[in-house]
Design a protein around this nucleic acid. Structure first.
Lengths: 138, 138
DNA sequence: CGGCATCCTATACGATACTG
DNA sequence: CAGTATCGTATAGGATGCCG
């Protein structure tokens, strides 16, 4: 998945990095993780605020995904020893770098909604009757 | 999920765009779709080539995900009416734009492998004994 | 309030097998 | 070779409830 970073490593080390990269990618490249990262952004949000801000996420998935992101050093978790408890979430430095990319993904989605909607209609139409995109003989 | 694009729309239209954006995001923001997009990149690959290039993907998931990406107008599918059949996959213009972002995501992952690996070790250690990150009283 | 555990359903996914 | 269908398992994910 995008080499170049592993240049000049011993085979064993490359393999370990490869495996870790795959793991990390799995942690991050999923709907909830990406939405959470994008939502926190530059701000600091409490658990409940996040739960409300991330459209459609459940209490459970938020807690679960936050734990993974915290472990991976993408989000910071600050616990106030008050009662009732207060927990603030923010992005780490690494998380902030990541977030610029994630945000670009969200913006791309928004900007292509119409285009994609039309592509879908064309596709669904094509499915109805045969004759798809076929390379022409020359 | 990242507003601003829906400014100056009627409420009903905003809601439709909102729903579509969520759908599209679900299609794209998952491991396989992102890996496929990043792998195709600027090139044109046959089904079998893609299957080999995308680390760990199964025949089934590749076919399934490609269908979704094709429908969304992210990948182009060119069928050669030969026997045995040959099918070439490449990114559409929209897909190419998207791919720059996706690639940035992959690169970020690679570049932060060590950093994240260390963050994980610290996290796992913290879990063993209590005393987590707690806000100090002032 | 934040978080974990539990239960249950829905979906993701792999393996396999069959077609054109 | 590319694709679809089927089946079984595994994981995602919602709902609920209990604790500090």
């Amino acid at each position: 998945m995008t080499k170049q970073v592993t240049d000049g490593m011993e085979p064993a080390e490359v393999k370990r990095t490869e495996a870790l990269a795959a793991e990390i990618f799995t942690d991050i490249a999923n709907k909830w993780a990406l939405l959470i990262i994008n939502t926190i952004g530059e701000s600091t949000l409490r658990f409940t605020e996040l739960c409300a801000a991330v459209e459609g996420i459940s209490h459970k998935m938020l807690a679960q995904t936050l734990r993974i992101l915290e472990r991976d050093g993408v989000v910071d978790r600050l616990v106030y020893p008050t009662v009732p408890p207060r927990v603030d979430y923010s992005l780490t430095d690494a998380g902030l770098v990541l977030r610029t990319t994630v945000n670009a993904l969200c913006i791309w989605t928004r900007q292509h909604v119409d285009h994609i909607d039309q592509a879908r209609q064309r596709f669904d139409e094509r499915q109805a009757r045969p004759s798809s995109t076929v390379a022409q003989e020359t």
